[in-house]
Simulated scan of single mutants.
Amino acid sequence: MQKIKVGIIGGAGYTGGELIRLLINHPAADIVFINSRSNAGKPVSAIHQDLLGDTELFFSDDLSALGGGVDVVFLCLGHGESKKFLEGNTIADNIKIIDLANDFRLSKQSVIGNRKFVYGLPELNKAEIKTAQHIANPGCFATTIQLGLLPLAKAGLLEEIYTTGITGSTGAGQSLSATSHFSWRANNIQAYKTLTHQHLGEIGESLMQLQSKGTIDLNFVPWRGDFTRGIFISSTVHCNLSAEELKILYKDFYKNAAFTFVSDQPIFLKQVVNTNKAIIQLEKVGSKLVVHSIADNLLKGASGQAVQNMNLMFGLAETAGLRLKAAGF
């Protein structure tokens, strides 16, 4: 089988490292180059030290393969940097692009030059992803919140939503900051970006894609958690459907989903950490419905979903290279 030739731009950070870990073990992928200007010439295992013995790849600043030497390029750059990279570099038209930043997620920002980016949430846009040339990979909070709410949007049941969510420190990226430092995070939590989080726009667009009538008011309070990876979301809405009707609604919506599952039991983060899975649990009390949803912010919320999109774009099994073991204990 001819393998997919892959290039990675920005391979030294958390999402880049997770992408490398997935692709060096992917049965249909061959990494041609990993670009990092600050680490050019260094072994990948010198930065991602857990990969010692797993790969002999080196970081490079050579971008010549963008002329046609790869089939797909992953952009693992900081928010706002992907647009600058595409404006400053020539990439052959036949090369597919998967952007992990937020530069092209919103419809009004999805076109740059002759490139149109499709929002890459497989549970929502699988058919479009299969024929897309360019993908805007969703955000981690956005993915986890949307997966909990999409079935309700399709049924036209969303009006006012109150959502809280807690995320691990890796969600803040690898650059050091006061609130990602161990001494600050340990035995500590904090709300941040209350009602103003940057993922609200993409969540709203996706929900309105399925529920075009009326308005949806999403109130989101994110929290920084005392752990490294994973997202736990709880969304509260008014709903008159019974618990049994809701269970049928959700399980029918996700019956063909490769990685999203509805649990009849209480859910917890260790079920999804180190996997590409998202798990949903429903709790109905009176007229209130609480939808819990969990995912690994670096996998289903970032690099794992990017590989899932690559699989769809190249006609591979959606789960290729993504059958991962949960942390468990």
Rank of each mutant, 00 (worst) to 15 (best):
K3W: 05
K5L: 12
G11M: 07
G13C: 01
T15M: 04
I20S: 02
A29Y: 13
R37C: 08
G41A: 08
V44C: 00
G53Q: 05
F58E: 11
F59Q: 01
S64P: 12
A65M: 15
G69L: 02
V73W: 01
K83W: 03
K84N: 15
K84I: 13
N89R: 10
D93N: 11
D93A: 12
N94I: 07
D99A: 04
N102G: 15
S107G: 07
V118T: 15
P122I: 01
K130R: 15
A132H: 05
I145L: 03
L150F: 12
E159H: 07
T163F: 02
G173Q: 01
L176H: 14
L176I: 12
L176N: 11
A178N: 13
T194Y: 10
H197Y: 04
H199M: 14
M208C: 12
L210Y: 06
S212V: 11
D217T: 05
F220S: 01
P222E: 04
F227Y: 09
N240T: 14
L241M: 12
K247I: 15
Y250S: 08
K251V: 05
Y254I: 04
A257V: 03
F261E: 12
V262N: 01
S263K: 09
P266A: 13
F268C: 06
N274C: 09
N276I: 01
A278Q: 04
G286E: 07
V290R: 15
L298G: 09
K300G: 07
K300A: 11
G301M: 00
G304C: 05
G304F: 03
A306E: 02
M313P: 08
F314W: 03
A317C: 11
K325M: 10
F329R: 11
